[in-house]
Amino acid sequence: MPVRKKQDQVCRQCHRVLESDKESCIVCLDSSLSTDWQGYLIIIDPKRSAIAQRMNIDLPGRYALKVR
């Protein structure tokens, strides 16, 4: 029987990708999480990233581009 990996969740508010076992976002504390998302973005230095500035990202981490 194949092992199924739990799907990562994304915060609908800040778009941060979270581990599948989280119940709320660790950054904005929003409990509205989704498994329906597209695009994967890794921000290393938000102060020097034009994409991070456009998405209003202040902290390094993994983010989704589109969340439903």
Results as ranks from 00 to 15, higher is better:
V3M: 14
R4V: 14
D8G: 07
D8A: 15
Q9C: 02
Q9P: 07
Q9H: 10
Q9M: 12
Q13P: 00
C14W: 11
C14R: 01
C14N: 00
H15A: 01
H15W: 09
H15I: 05
R16K: 14
R16V: 13
R16N: 01
R16Y: 08
V17C: 06
L18R: 05
L18C: 00
L18S: 06
L18Q: 06
E19Q: 14
D21H: 15
D21G: 13
D21W: 15
C25T: 05
C25N: 09
V27Y: 10
V27C: 00
C28R: 09
L29E: 05
L29H: 04
D30E: 02
D30K: 09
D30C: 06
S31Q: 09
S32F: 11
L33A: 10
S34T: 15
G39E: 02
I43T: 09
I44E: 06
D45I: 12
D45F: 06
D45N: 13
K47S: 02
K47L: 04
R48D: 11
R48H: 12
R48G: 08
A50Y: 06
A52K: 04
Q53I: 10
R54N: 10
I57F: 09
I57G: 11
D58Y: 12
L59D: 12
P60A: 07
P60L: 01
G61N: 06
R62S: 06
A64K: 10
K66V: 09
K66S: 12
V67G: 00
V67L: 05
R68D: 04
R68G: 04
